[in-house]
Measured scan of single mutants.
Amino acid sequence: ENVVSAPMPGKVLRVLVRVGDRVRVGQGLLVLEAMKMENEIPSPRDGVVKRILVKEGEIVDTGQPKIELG
């Protein structure tokens, strides 16, 4: 899985990584606000952040790609 998608609709509060960052499985990639709760979205695997496809403040839909890992 190279693309991390939104598990639920919500607002991107914070992006916790930058392009080029090495990430580990379970590491937080971003914080999504859904139903007035903050949810940290974890990396599904070890890898390197290739692209960030969302911006802080953006509203995302379920299944929308957010971060691409290499």
Rank of each mutant, 00 (worst) to 15 (best):
E1K: 12
E1Q: 13
E1I: 14
E1V: 14
E1A: 13
E1F: 12
N2M: 14
N2K: 09
N2A: 11
N2G: 11
V3Y: 14
V3N: 06
V4H: 04
V4K: 04
V4G: 04
V4C: 09
V4F: 04
S5E: 08
S5N: 10
S5V: 14
S5P: 07
S5F: 14
S5W: 10
A6K: 04
A6E: 04
A6L: 06
A6S: 13
P7Q: 12
P7E: 10
P7M: 12
P7F: 10
M8K: 07
M8S: 09
P9L: 07
P9T: 08
K11C: 09
K11W: 07
K11V: 10
V12F: 00
V12N: 03
L13V: 12
L13K: 11
L13P: 00
L13Q: 04
L13T: 10
L13I: 13
R14D: 07
R14F: 03
R14W: 01
R14M: 06
R14S: 06
R14I: 10
R14H: 09
V15F: 06
V15Y: 02
V15Q: 03
L16T: 04
L16K: 05
L16W: 00
V17Q: 01
V17H: 00
V17E: 03
R18H: 12
R18W: 04
R18S: 13
R18T: 11
V19K: 06
V19Q: 08
V19W: 04
V19H: 05
V19R: 05
G20M: 06
G20Q: 04
G20V: 03
G20T: 03
D21S: 07
D21I: 10
D21M: 07
D21K: 01
R22W: 14
R22H: 14
R22A: 12
R22N: 11
R24I: 12
R24Y: 13
V25T: 12
V25K: 15
V25A: 14
V25G: 08
G26D: 05
G26Q: 04
Q27L: 06
Q27Y: 02
Q27T: 09
G28R: 07
L29S: 01
L29H: 01
L30K: 00
L30R: 00
V31C: 06
V31I: 14
V31F: 03
V31W: 05
V31Y: 04
V31S: 02
V31G: 00
V31N: 00
L32T: 02
E33C: 15
A34H: 14
A34Q: 09
A34F: 15
A34R: 07
A34K: 03
M35Y: 12
M35C: 14
M35Q: 12
M35L: 12
K36Q: 14
K36Y: 13
K36W: 12
K36A: 14
K36F: 14
K36D: 15
K36I: 07
M37Y: 08
M37N: 10
M37I: 13
M37D: 08
M37A: 11
M37V: 13
E38L: 12
E38Y: 08
E38W: 08
E38G: 05
E38P: 09
E38R: 08
N39Q: 14
N39Y: 15
N39R: 14
N39V: 15
N39P: 03
N39T: 14
N39A: 12
E40P: 07
E40L: 15
E40Q: 10
E40G: 03
I41N: 01
I41S: 02
P42A: 12
P42Y: 12
P42M: 12
P42S: 11
P42G: 10
P42R: 14
S43C: 10
S43Y: 02
S43V: 02
S43E: 03
S43M: 02
S43P: 01
S43T: 05
P44T: 07
P44C: 06
P44M: 06
P44L: 06
R45V: 14
R45K: 11
D46M: 07
G47H: 02
G47Q: 03
G47I: 03
G47K: 01
G47N: 02
G47A: 10
G47Y: 00
V48C: 11
V48W: 14
V48Q: 08
V49T: 02
V49Y: 00
K50F: 06
K50I: 15
R51P: 03
R51S: 10
R51L: 07
I52F: 00
I52Q: 01
I52R: 00
I52C: 04
I52A: 01
I52W: 00
L53Q: 03
L53H: 08
L53A: 03
L53K: 03
V54H: 02
V54I: 10
V54F: 01
K55C: 10
K55N: 10
E56K: 09
E56N: 07
E56V: 14
E56S: 08
G57A: 04
G57L: 05
E58K: 03
I59K: 09
I59S: 10
I59V: 12
I59Y: 15
I59R: 10
V60L: 07
V60R: 02
V60P: 02
V60T: 11
D61C: 14
D61P: 06
D61A: 14
D61N: 13
D61F: 14
T62P: 11
T62R: 14
T62L: 12
T62N: 09
T62E: 12
G63W: 09
G63C: 09
G63H: 10
G63Q: 07
G63D: 09
Q64Y: 07
Q64N: 06
Q64K: 06
Q64E: 07
P65T: 08
P65Y: 06
P65C: 08
P65A: 12
P65W: 08
P65M: 09
K66Q: 15
K66P: 08
K66H: 15
K66N: 15
K66R: 04
K66M: 15
I67P: 02
I67Q: 02
I67D: 01
I67R: 01
E68K: 06
E68C: 14
E68W: 11
E68R: 07
E68A: 09
E68Y: 11
L69Q: 02
L69K: 01
L69D: 01
L69I: 13
G70S: 13
G70P: 03
